[in-house]
């Protein structure tokens, strides 16, 4: 898929709870992107130099949605961006999730849930309704629950026990006895490593989406490398999604 510099307009910025926002962007040149791909977003007026890599949350031709959490100067600006603002976006970038699970188990934590929305939607379009274990710090917003429930059977885990299972995603029974032919994960690194360990124990293929710090997003600068079984590879172009048997975890 050809990479482009797109100028997109912020159509809406909806509060998704716990510091997260769903941004919907539009532009006639915006191509449909794949689950697990990402874009590099220029951050206006934050005094930051580099673009920020953000996962595709939802995508159709002419429309792109991103789930962002205010966690620093750049993401603070994005999380509070006003409708009507023009954003420069480079994408689509990276290699996303495989779509060949017949009984996929998706596992996401916090803002790492972003790529699993489009993944669930695409599975759904293939007639597969995946299960999703969704980890949050505290009870998620109705907006997120409703969105994910459209395309997946959702189990919620919260760190503070305010909703669903108390504890992280590994507390979910579906991860203690994995009954799936593919586990697909995105979230904080310790969470992904724990889920990868569970999948390996159950001998189920597992894909994880890495978010190593990157500069170019194009495979040129070699900053975002992950040490893999075949040496250092760029997360931006060889990933961000890797099969765990490619990693040295």
């Amino acid at each position: 898929m050809r990479k482009q510099i797109l100028t997109l307009t912020v159509e809406s910025n909806t509060d998704a709870g716990d510091g997260m926002s769903v941004l919907t962007l539009s532009g006639p040149d915006c191509p449909a992107m794949l689950p697990g791909q990402f874009v590099e977003v220029e951050v206006p007026g934050a005094g930051v130099l580099l673009r920020r890599p953000i996962s595709v949350f939802d995508s159709d031709t002419g429309r792109l949605s991103l789930l962002v959490r205010a966690a620093g100067r750049a993401t603070d600006v994005l999380a509070h961006i006003q409708p009507g603002t023009a954003l420069s976006v480079v994408g689509p970038l990276g290699r996303g999730f495989a779509m060949d699970g017949r009984r996929p188990l998706l596992v996401g934590g916090g803002v790492g849930l972003a790529p699993l929305y489009l993944l669930a939607r695409r599975y759904s379009a293939q007639g597969v309704r995946p299960r999703l274990i969704a980890g949050f710090r505290t009870a998620p917003s109705q907006l997120l629950k409703d969105l994910y429930a459209r395309y997946a059977e959702v189990t919620v885990c919260t760190d503070d026990g305010s909703e669903g299972i108390r504890g992280n995603v590994c507390a979910a029974p579906a991860l203690q006895h994995i009954d799936a032919d593919m586990v697909q994960v995105c979230g904080p690194l310790p969470m992904m490593k724990a889920v990868a360990g569970a999948a390996r124990t159950a001998a189920v293929p597992c894909q994880v989406s890495l978010e190593n710090k990157m500069a170019c997003g194009l495979g040129a600068c070699l900053c975002c490398v992950e040490n893999t079984t075949t040496g250092n590879r760029c997360v931006c172009t060889d990933g961000p999604v890797f099969n765990i048997n490619e990693l040295t975890w």
Binding site: L50, K213, L222, C223, C224, V225
Partner: peptide, 14 residues
């Protein structure tokens, strides 16, 4: 090359 992390953004630079 060197181990990760290899990059840090700094004011007006990296």
């Amino acid at each position: 090359g060197n181990p990760y992390p290899r990059m840090a953004e700094t004011p007006s630079g990296m």
